[in-house]
Design a protein around this nucleic acid. Sequence first.
DNA 1: CTAATCAGTACCGAATTGGTCCTGATTGAA
DNA 2: TTCAATCAGGACCAATTCGGTACTGATTAG
Lengths: 152, 152
Amino acid sequence: MIKLSKLTDYAIVVMSEMARQTGTVHTVTQMAERTGVPAPTVAKLMKSLTPAGLMTSHRGAAGGYALARPAEAITIADIVVALDGPIALTACVEGAGEECGVENLCPMRGGWEKINRAIRSALEQVTLADMMGPVWTPPAREPAKALASGNA
Amino acid sequence: MIKLSKLTDYAIVVMSEMARQTGTVHTVTQMAERTGVPAPTVAKLMKSLTPAGLMTSHRGAAGGYALARPAEAITIADIVVALDGPIALTACVEGAGEECGVENLCPMRGGWEKINRAIRSALEQVTLADMMGPVWTPPAREPAKALASGNA
DNA sequence: CTAATCAGTACCGAATTGGTCCTGATTGAA
DNA sequence: TTCAATCAGGACCAATTCGGTACTGATTAG
């Protein structure tokens, strides 16, 4: 299976949980408790998502994180780019030109571009809001994995 | 970057090279020489692609492998499924139900299904023929990587 | 001034992946 | 019939990547 990294999966879970909760500022500890994702891992995610413009942060005693935009305005593509880098199945992609010195000559470029464009388009059409659903309680064991994949 | 495994990348390279060559039967050694992919690795690929119906094989002194269908009739989706398993970004996918016991309740299912379908569709619309191009000579160093990604 | 929380960086163990090796089976040619 | 060439199956290993953690510094409200 071609797959997203677990960390990206976690980010979507955490961010959709933030979108669902009332209140706007959430600490790493709160997010960890609600989603079952380990706190150090949530902290790590926030350190990538914040500079990418998807989260805003506030230091200090009343500090925490908030979604930078409403859930409807954050696409899965945004999240994937922030954590996994450019959306593509191979290094043959715009913006990754430094890895490909003969892009004009590569016989496969056309095929891969078609695929990469379709994937990007699909990820851009789904937002965090689409990933939210009824309130859901994470299982007690292997929670992060279970939650990320929707497992029982 | 969400990416295909290197082995899947190699398989596409090797198979498109086979499609380009005259003659229909190619040994592992020949394919390794033409593409720069190590022979044991090519052999490994063939052991997955053949049972999947993408290659036919013939043992014995005049043995080797051949594409099971013309290049136009082999999609990138076929190859990815044979090597990487079902096409999906997460375990939330039809056919992987054993990993998800609450698929009817999973709040994210709808979003992921849309994405997974789009990726499958994109991969099904590109064939091995689309990945072939002018005759191209692989570089001498790090050949498999260079070739697979079209790097100089 | 203190406690709570984010920010940056480095490190480590586990898992996965790429790659190899060995042996057995098959087949055509000598 | 024998032999060389090649595929088939399975196991194993090293390297790399990823998930996860830990520590220290900076910031902020009370």
